[in-house]
C-alpha cells in the first residue's frame, strides 16, 4: 500500500482525500469498482463560465488517454478550486479520478495540494492498474499538484 507522506514539515495528503483512500483500502475489488463508478457519476464538468470547447491545450492532462483537462481557480481565501473535463465518453476511470479530486482537494491550500504524490492514483484504483492506465490517472493527479505548485511559484515571485 502507498502511504501518505506525513513529515513534521510536510502538509501530507488532504484529510478528505486520505479518508476516502482509507475507505477504498477496506473494499474488495468489486466493491472498490462500484464505489469508483458511483464517484464517476458524481463528476461535474467544468462550468461554461470557466472554459468552453474546444478546451485549451495548456489545460490538457499529459499522458491521459481519456482527454482530461484541469483548471485551478483561486478563491478569495487563497485556497484552490478544481474543475475538470473528460472528453472520452467512456472514460469512467478518468471521471472517477476527477470527481475524487473535485470533492477532496478543492478548498485546500496550494501548499497542501502541491504535496500530493501522483501515485495516490495507484492506491485509489488498486494494484491491478495496467501501466498505461496508471500513467494516465497519475497524470491527472500530477496536473492538479502542478497547478498548485505554479500558484506557489507565482506567489513567491510576486
Amino acid at each position: 500500500m502507498i502511504t501518505s507522506p506525513r513529515t513534521p514539515d510536510g502538509p501530507g495528503v488532504p484529510e478528505a482525500l486520505e479518508k476516502l483512500m482509507t475507505e477504498l483500502d477496506s473494499l474488495d475489488r468489486t466493491e472498490r469498482g462500484q464505489m469508483l463508478i458511483e464517484l464517476s457519476r458524481e463528476f461535474e464538468e467544468v462550468s461554461p463560465e470557466v472554459a468552453a470547447r474546444p478546451f485549451p491545450e495548456d489545460h490538457r492532462v499529459l499522458r491521459c488517454e481519456s482527454e482530461a483537462y484541469v483548471w485551478a481557480l483561486e478563491r478569495e481565501d487563497g485556497t484552490l478550486e478544481y474543475q475538470f473535463a473528460v472528453e472520452n465518453p467512456q472514460g469512467v476511470s478518468a471521471r472517477a479520478m476527477a470527481a475524487i479530486l473535485q470533492q477532496t482537494v478543492s478548498g485546500e491550500t496550494p501548499e497542501k495540494i502541491a504535496a500530493i504524490p501522483s501515485d495516490i492514483a495507484i492506491r485509489i484504483f488498486g494494484g491491478s492498474l495496467t501501466m498505461g492506465k496508471g500513467e494516465g490517472l497519475m497524470g491527472i493527479v500530477a496536473a492538479v499538484s502542478r497547478a498548485a505548485k505554479n500558484r506557489l511559484e507565482r506567489t513567491d515571485a510576486g
Binding site: G33, I37, Q90, G91, V92, S93, A96, G132, K133
Partner: peptide
C-alpha cells in the same frame, strides 16, 4: 481498455 467501463 478501462476496467470500470463494463461494470458501469
Amino acid at each position: 481498455e478501462d476496467p470500470l467501463v463494463y461494470p458501469s
